Amino acid sequence: MSTTTDLVDAPAADPVHAGPAAEPRRSRMLLLQLLCFVGVVVLWELVSLLGLVSASALPSPFETAARFGTLLADGGYWSAVGETLRDAVVGLLAAAVIGVPLGLVTGTYVAAEESSRLLVDFLRSFPVIALLPVFLLVLGSTPSMKQTVVFIACVFPVFLQAQYGARSVPPMIAETVRAYRIPRLLRFRRVILPSATPSIMTGLRLAATTSVLVAIGVEILTTLPGIGHEVTQQQQSGNSDAAFAYIFTAGILGYGINRASMYLETSLMRWRPPAHPS
């Protein structure tokens, strides 16, 4: 008779790889995405040419692209990007260090989850930007304040996903573990953590994008340096093309972080069979 450890350690079946028939579909999808992007740029250019929106508020896409190319050679541009990324990463790491263990503990033990449910639901109902004046009074307009706001915005998605993952152990495996009286540490390492890892990775991926957006939002509302502060400064100075170039930079960062997170998740989860095998 095989033990629980044998059951858990057994390698998962290899994912079902998409055949050659999936290539045309992927190519069509990429083409549609490209056409959608080009369509938005064309519409943007038409609005600019027809003067439907003031040029001081909405520059043409070509002016924005030209200014973006100029900014790439400016050290101040890279300094602003670095400020935003640094505080976003610090807040995200703090959220992961605190949110993942707490989520695993409350997801594993029913008493811990039930006793903390009211507090968690109460705290995560606050819009984090609405708490910004409080943090400004307590911490001042400092990078630590921005990192704290990012942490609060990211910790609950990470916490809840880790908690959900810890509760996702199949009932049959959970009953087998109890029947064999597997030690807690071994149960956590061989049963709970593998089951929770997909949900944890999803929470981290969502939080990674949120961290950059919140950091930029804080910079817009305060005097802290970063992409958001540059958007405000350039807009107030009448350099709308530079402001849109920084907004475009924020979009590139968000997209890049999301794609990198998805790639990392896929690489780390190769052992996991596909959810809907063909």
Rank of each mutant, 00 (worst) to 15 (best):
V8P: 00
P15I: 09
V16F: 08
V16Q: 09
A18F: 00
G19I: 12
A22Y: 01
E23L: 07
P24L: 03
P24G: 04
S27T: 10
R28A: 08
M29Q: 08
L32M: 07
L34V: 11
L35D: 07
L35H: 04
F37H: 01
F37I: 12
F37K: 03
V38N: 06
G39H: 06
V40Y: 03
V40E: 05
L43Y: 05
V47A: 08
L50K: 03
G51T: 06
V53G: 07
S54R: 15
A55V: 14
S56L: 10
A73G: 15
G75N: 05
Y77S: 05
Y77F: 15
W78G: 11
A80I: 05
A88R: 10
A88T: 05
V90I: 15
L93I: 15
V97R: 07
V100F: 07
V100G: 04
P101Q: 14
P101S: 12
G103W: 01
L104S: 06
L104F: 05
T106D: 06
T106M: 15
Y109L: 15
A111S: 13
E113T: 07
E114A: 14
E114V: 14
E114K: 14
L118K: 08
V120Y: 01
V120T: 12
F122S: 08
L123W: 02
L123T: 03
L123Q: 02
F126W: 10
I129P: 00
L136D: 01
V138D: 03
L139D: 03
L139F: 12
G140W: 06
S144E: 06
K146N: 11
K146M: 15
T148E: 12
V150T: 10
V150K: 08
F151Y: 05
P157V: 00
P157H: 02
F159Y: 13
L160F: 01
Q163M: 14
Y164W: 08
G165Q: 01
A166Q: 06
S168F: 02
S168I: 13
S168L: 10
S168Y: 04
V169Y: 04
V169D: 10
P170C: 06
P170K: 05
P171Y: 01
T176H: 13
T176W: 11
V177A: 12
P183A: 04
P183Q: 03
R184E: 14
L185M: 10
L186D: 15
R187F: 06
F188C: 14
P194R: 03
T197P: 00
S199M: 12
I200S: 00
T202F: 01
T202M: 09
L204F: 02
L206H: 01
A207P: 04
A208Q: 01
V212M: 03
L213I: 15
L213W: 02
V214L: 08
I216C: 04
E219F: 00
I220C: 11
I220N: 11
T222I: 13
T223W: 00
T223V: 11
P225C: 14
G226I: 00
H229N: 15
T232N: 07
Q233V: 13
Q234R: 11
Q235S: 12
Q236R: 07
D241S: 14
D241K: 03
D241G: 04
D241V: 02
A243F: 01
A250T: 03
A250F: 00
G251R: 01
G251W: 02
L253N: 04
G256Q: 11
G256W: 08
I257T: 12
R259H: 10
A260V: 09
S261T: 03
S261Q: 02
L264M: 08
E265W: 04
L268N: 09
L268H: 04
M269F: 02
R272M: 14
R272L: 14
